[in-house]
Structure formats: C-alpha cells, structure tokens
Simulated scan of single mutants.
Amino acid sequence: MQANDHGDRPTDVPADRVSDPNDPQGRSEPRITLVGKPGCHLCDDAREVIRRVSHDLDVGWRELSILDDPELASRYAEQIPVTLVDGRQHDYWRVEESRLRAALAEGVRR
C-alpha cells in the first residue's frame, strides 16, 4: 500500500503514512482509516464494509498496512483490522456497518 500526505490528517496517523484510495488527488480529508495487512481475511471483510459505507455517505477513506510502519505494527498488530474514525480508534477485528454509519453521522453533528 502506498502512503501519501494529503495535508491535514488525524493525529493518530503519521503524516508519511497517509493515502486515500478513493481520492488520489487529495481533494478531501479521509474520515475513515483502515489499519490492516495484506492476506488478512478480516481486513478483506472490513474493507468491503468501509467501501460500501464511504460510497453511500460520500466519505473519504484510506488504508494503512502494519507491514509498512513499525509504529502501527507495535500499536495495532494484535487487533487488525482496526478502524479509525476522524483519527480515533473506532473498532477492531470486525467492522459493524451500523456502528460505523452512526459514528460518521455523530462526527458531522459535532
């Protein structure tokens, strides 16, 4: 997975590890971050939920691999996939679609 800096970012994600597959030109700040690794079947499941929700709500997302970043590996290796919403840990192991939608809606109301 490629990492690109797209400007402002959540504080939990290092600037040099940011990429947004839905917005390669960096026009919007991704609200969802999926932390995982290649070959992780739970990450595949989480990715599908995140893709669906981000498309439905027109919200950007990015994916980071623990294999590319020792800090992420140290922090999240036993929990992947980990979902961050607005830079804060939201879920791990599984992504519940209704909870993710609610968290994104809550963030808009703040």
Rank of each mutant, 00 (worst) to 15 (best):
P70N: 14
D45F: 03
I50N: 08
W61K: 01
L34A: 02
S65L: 01
S65P: 05
P38Y: 07
S65D: 13
P30D: 06
E63P: 00
P24Q: 13
W61D: 05
D58P: 02
R31A: 13
R31W: 04
P21R: 03
I50T: 08
E48T: 13
E48I: 06
D20I: 02
S28P: 00
V35G: 11
D20A: 10
H41C: 10
R17I: 08
P30Q: 15
G39R: 01
P24K: 12
I32N: 02
W61T: 10
P30A: 15
G60F: 06
R27N: 15
D44P: 02
S19A: 14
H55R: 13
H55V: 01
E29A: 08
S28L: 12
V59W: 05
I66G: 01
G36W: 00
P30G: 14
G36K: 01
G60P: 03
D45Y: 06
I50D: 04
G26F: 06
P24T: 12
Q25I: 00
L67M: 10
E29D: 09
L42F: 14
P24A: 13
R27Q: 15
L57Y: 07
D68T: 10
S28D: 11
R17E: 14
C40P: 07
V18E: 08
P21I: 12
K37L: 05
G36P: 00
D69Q: 04
S19P: 00
R31Q: 12
D56H: 10
Q25G: 06
W61Y: 15
V49T: 14
T33W: 13
P70T: 11
N22E: 15
V18Y: 12
N22P: 00
G26T: 06
R51C: 08
R62L: 09
C43K: 03
G36I: 00
Q25V: 02
R51L: 11
I50S: 04
L64T: 06
D23W: 02
G26M: 00
V53M: 09
G60C: 06
L57A: 11
G26P: 02
K37T: 07
D45T: 11
I50W: 05
D44H: 12
G36T: 09
S54T: 13
D23N: 09
K37D: 03
R51N: 14
D20N: 15
I50R: 01
I66Q: 03
D58F: 10
I50H: 05
L42S: 06
I32L: 09
T33Y: 10
G39Q: 01
L64V: 13
E48M: 13
I66P: 00
S65R: 02
D69C: 14
E29P: 01
E29H: 12
S19N: 14
G39A: 04
H55W: 07
I32K: 01
I50P: 04
L64P: 08
P38G: 11
P70L: 13
I32Y: 07
R62G: 15
W61E: 05
D69F: 03
V18C: 08
I32P: 02
K37G: 00
R47M: 14
C43S: 13
L42W: 11
L64I: 10
S54G: 09
H41N: 12
G36N: 05
R31N: 08
P38V: 03
D69N: 10
N22Y: 10
G39C: 01
I50V: 15
D45H: 09
S19W: 13
E48R: 14
E63K: 09
K37S: 09
H41Q: 10
C40K: 03
